[in-house]
């Protein structure tokens, strides 16, 4: 086992933060990028020591190469293998963990060497606590996606990789998500509503606020799924839209982790909720404790001042 760290990446998001985490884990940092050239270039821009790139066919998901790449990683025997949390990257990671004989931890924030062990901090209980774990032996870790940090060095060079193994037969067809291109995905400001809204008719209450902010309307999962008050393409959350507005204003949303995952990249999150114990008040940047039916008109008035 070497003291090096590998990062397996099948998607181009959060790579700078992931490379920074890999640097902290120690040794030479190699990114194994599996996908189009743009992904390899994004990995190189995150400034690891090297990028090894496996180009996939347009209709081939990265996971088709999971077993073949696991053998490549095992041959290099790094002491730490990391991956961002997207489904393809963590599938590559889990495959690599088996031949490495590595422990598999997820939602990992940091990894550092200490004496002969690895000390891992990870997010647990939906982000309510940070748990510290000590790992003996190699580690495979799915990272908690972090805000991208600026790279600390010049871009790395990209070297093509030709695995000895073959891919398994898998095909992927990619299509734009209906209704996803416009609206909330590109909006600078998003006002989102949750179960704190009492009826569909009350959506009209938000019109003045949306206009005053120049914001798009979004919602939590139950408002689109259970109640059908807002079109499903405006639902923000783990299996819904992932957005990065400058301002995300959550009204009557409790702030469950699966919802907040959709706004992890928002610059500022503000929340209005009548429950001072609502989880969103532990994660938002700003909170107002109050009834949204009173606070929303007051916000419109304050914005006009």
């Amino acid at each position: 086992m070497s003291d090096d760290t590998w990062l397996l990446a099948a998607a181009g998001t959060h790579l700078k933060g992931a490379v920074a985490a890999a640097r902290a884990a120690g040794g030479r940092v190699t990114v194994l990028a599996v996908g189009p050239r743009e992904l390899a270039d994004a990995a190189a821009a995150a400034a690891p020591d090297e990028v090894r790139w496996l180009e996939t066919a347009d209709d081939q998901p990265a996971e088709a190469w999971a077993a073949a790449l696991a053998a490549e990683v095992a041959a290099a025997a790094p002491h730490v293998v990391l991956a961002p949390s997207d489904p393809a990257s963590r599938t590559l990671l889990a495959a690599a963990a088996v031949p490495l004989g590595a422990a598999l931890l997820t939602r990992v924030l940091t990894v550092r060497s200490q004496d002969d062990a690895l000390v891992v901090d990870r997010s647990s209980l939906g982000g309510a606590v940070v748990e510290t774990l000590t790992v003996q032996g190699p580690l495979a870790a799915v990272l908690e996606d972090a805000d991208d940090a600026p790279p600390a060095a010049a871009p790395a060079t990209v070297a093509p990789l030709a695995p000895a193994g073959a891919p398994v037969p898998m095909q992927v067809k990619r299509e734009p998500l209906p209704g996803a291109a416009a609206g909330i995905r590109d909006a600078a400001r998003v006002v989102s509503v949750g179960r704190g809204l009492r009826s569909k008719d009350d959506l009209a209450l938000l019109d003045g606020l949306l206009a005053a902010l120049g914001a798009e309307l979004a919602c939590s999962m139950p408002v689109a799924d259970d109640l059908g008050w807002v079109p499903k393409e405006r639902y923000v959350g783990r299996s819904g839209q992932h957005i990065a507005p400058r301002l995300y204003l959550a009204l009557g949303i409790s702030g469950m982790p699966q919802h907040l995952e959709g706004v992890r990249d928002a610059k500022v999150v503000a929340a209005v909720n009548n429950d001072p114990a609502a989880p969103i008040f532990r994660t938002a940047d700003y909170g107002v404790v109050g009834d949204l039916y009173e606070v929303v008109p007051a916000l419109v008035a304050a914005l006009a001042e």
């Binding site: 422990a103 606590v129 748990e131 790992v135 001072p276 008040f281 940047d285 909170g287 107002v288 404790v289």
Partner: peptide, 18 residues
């Protein structure tokens, strides 16, 4: 291979609540 070493609250209790 993994030994738990305890939990703590996240450092950023950062929400400014009005």
């Amino acid at each position: 291979a993994v030994v738990a070493g305890g939990t703590r609250l996240p450092e950023q209790a950062r929400t400014r609540v009005f």
